[in-house]
Amino acid sequence: MTGSASELARRLGDHAEAVCREYLSNGHRSGNHWIVGDVRNTRGRSMHVRLMANAKGPAGKWVDEQSGEHGDLLDVIEASCGLTEFREVADEARRFLAMPRTQWPTTDAQRHPAAARGSPDAARRLFGMSQPIAGTLAGRYLAGRGIILTARERALRFHPGCYYRDLVTGETQTLPALIAAVTGVDGRITGLQRTWLDPTGNGKAQLVDPRRSLGHLLGNAIWLGLDPGVPIPVMAAGEGFETMASLRTVMPALPVAAATSANHLAGLSFPPGCRRLYIAADADAAGRHGIERLSQRAGKAGILALALRPQLGDFNDDLRHLGAASLAAWLSDQLAPVDARLFLPCG
């Protein structure tokens, strides 16, 4: 055993069907191939994994006929588990093969370009491994929260088996997750937020912290309705994604930004051409501090900042318990008349 990536891939190939049953459980065997939707373990028939070596090549090689992607079983482990570092992929492969861990030389890590844990590169890779939310558990989760967004929202994705590490025990598991891209006003992904979901469809996963962010967040946000390069004269911003997605549900033409925390809200970057900024209020002290800081920065930039306040705990509570029509009516009295007419259905 040389410890090289190619040797590890070959060993996985010796157990190709077992690997597929473990990491591509939504597929099935057909002849000498395992058939599944894609490398992220989506249901379907587009991806074919060779189970035994033949004249066409070694066991474990796969191709996705729809996307053109191809690779080996290490790629399967990486994508299906939502891993972003080769060391983690290797450790998971060794766990499956019941082999001891080893120190991997730098040359083997170059098999996949290095992406430091929590870096923007790691965020972009995980986002790229994910899929559109339509018809997925993530789409059903949002609908259950009353959030209805169009398919044009490019910031949201779904991963069926996103890697989760318990920060206390160090134990890991894979769970479905809603993936939300954090971007700058130029639309480039700098980070993301993961919301792990209960596989049975019963809301968030039963975890101490079912929502985590990674990457460069300060100044950036989860943007809904951002069109990079196009001026945004009026927008709304707030701390939580579901709060801002609720506003977007009743005002689908209004660009909104979720900064993911009170501190990040205070440092949000303004898009070109912004003249009016609606800030979704938060009841706690940290939230109020973020609103005050953002308002002050907006004033110095010549932007009029106006607060939007919910009737209940937050705007998602309003949407779920009072309904979209009630929320729209409540907002109509808080918006500038010209914005009420422009953004509200009956404004």
Results as ranks from 00 to 15, higher is better:
14 D>V: 01
317 D>Q: 14
63 V>I: 15
142 L>V: 12
303 I>T: 06
284 D>V: 03
320 R>K: 14
80 S>W: 02
149 L>M: 13
111 R>D: 11
242 E>N: 11
309 R>A: 11
294 L>K: 00
67 S>P: 05
134 A>H: 09
315 F>G: 10
335 L>I: 02
328 A>V: 14
49 V>N: 00
257 A>G: 07
162 C>N: 05
176 P>R: 09
50 R>A: 00
249 T>I: 06
33 H>C: 01
106 T>C: 10
191 G>P: 07
8 L>M: 05
212 R>Q: 13
202 N>R: 12
324 A>N: 10
211 R>N: 07
38 D>T: 05
20 C>E: 01
56 K>E: 01
281 A>E: 09
283 A>M: 02
332 S>Q: 14
165 R>K: 12
35 I>G: 04
331 L>K: 11
208 V>W: 04
46 S>T: 09
43 R>H: 09
318 D>N: 11
77 I>P: 05
140 R>W: 13
9 A>P: 05
323 G>A: 08
46 S>C: 09
186 D>Q: 13
332 S>V: 08
64 D>A: 03
60 G>N: 06
113 P>F: 04
18 A>W: 02
173 Q>S: 14
64 D>F: 03
339 D>T: 08
51 L>M: 12
94 R>G: 02
25 S>I: 01
10 R>L: 09
273 G>C: 09
162 C>G: 04
234 V>F: 03
89 V>T: 08
114 A>Q: 08
253 A>Y: 11
343 F>H: 12
38 D>P: 04
157 R>C: 01
129 M>A: 13
234 V>Y: 00
217 L>S: 03
259 A>E: 05
304 L>W: 09
29 R>Y: 03
203 G>D: 06
67 S>L: 07
330 W>C: 13
180 A>D: 13
112 H>W: 08
334 Q>L: 10
250 V>S: 11
219 G>L: 07
222 I>K: 02
72 D>G: 15
129 M>Q: 15
252 P>E: 11
23 Y>W: 14
301 A>Y: 07
93 A>V: 06
89 V>Q: 03
152 R>I: 08
6 S>P: 00
130 S>R: 03
308 L>D: 06
293 R>P: 02
176 P>T: 13
346 C>W: 15
341 R>V: 12
101 R>T: 12
39 V>S: 04
286 A>Q: 03
239 E>Y: 02
302 G>D: 06
274 C>Q: 10
13 G>N: 04
69 E>Y: 10
315 F>S: 11
196 W>Y: 12
15 H>V: 02
92 E>C: 13
281 A>S: 08
95 R>S: 12
157 R>W: 00
249 T>F: 07
72 D>T: 08
152 R>C: 11
283 A>G: 02
307 A>M: 13
33 H>R: 08
38 D>W: 05
89 V>F: 03
73 L>N: 05
149 L>G: 12
162 C>W: 00
157 R>K: 07
210 P>K: 03
92 E>F: 02
300 K>F: 10
206 Q>H: 14
324 A>Y: 02
153 E>N: 06
223 W>R: 10
30 S>D: 09
191 G>M: 06
70 H>A: 10
251 M>T: 11
327 L>Q: 04
24 L>N: 08
151 A>Q: 15
53 A>Q: 00
194 R>M: 14
269 S>E: 15
90 A>Y: 03
49 V>D: 00
28 H>W: 13
287 G>P: 05
260 T>H: 07
238 G>V: 01
91 D>N: 15
